[in-house]
Amino acid sequence: MLKARIIPCLDVENGRVVKGVNFLDLVDAGDPVEQARLYDKAGADELCFLDITASSDNRETIFDVVAKTAEECFMPLTVGGGVRSLNDIRKLLLAGSDKVSINTAAVNDPDFVREAAQKFGTQCIVVSIDAKSVGDRFEIFTHGGRTATGIDAVEFARRMVGYGAGEILLTSMDRDGTKIGFNLPLTRAVSDAVSVPVIASGGVGTLDHLVEGITEGHASAVLAASIFHFGTYTIAQAKHHMQAAGIPMRLE
């Protein structure tokens, strides 16, 4: 039976982890490879790097991080942040990334997703959607949730899948950082509207939130950062909690 996935996400800036696990036994908490190895051992089902490097001078650093991680970790790796061209995707895949997540570029130029899926296959194209509830509908926001686009998130997700997205990474922007749980109506609306797996993200504060993302949000996977990085919960605790709630999990 297919299992629900738990995906920890690491923010990487200039080749260094800026938001990651902060355990005493880490020699270098800023080393993405060491963090990745830790999550690999801890039983994470996949790993996600979000490159938040602002300066274009340092954008090459992520390729080195991905290459080094791929040498050490034999688990699926998704990389997002600043993916704007087919060449960006090619370089990330060649470095050892399995999937690439496209966010702003998909909103600005939906055809880019079609080209990317045709070129590299739907299995490696994740479209990342940041959305909030606006009245009784769901709208896409860009620039960290500050800029409204007027685009309906459910319609957009459906369109992206039609263009060849193999997976949707859906962030509840109105919940991000709040620790009050996913926007479940949004998550369910998108999950039920598309044929591909949806990863729920944004707002996780407790293990019950992870459960809700799957059972009520109908997501196939849950992505979380803070609850794992700050050691609030371990991956194993999360998995056992979800399994106890009746969700099939991979427990080693």
């Binding site: 297919l2 997976e167 591909v196 797996p197």
Partner: peptide
Amino acid sequence: SLKIPHMGWNT
């Protein structure tokens, strides 16, 4: 209701 691609860990 099962998603395509079949993506993730299976037995």
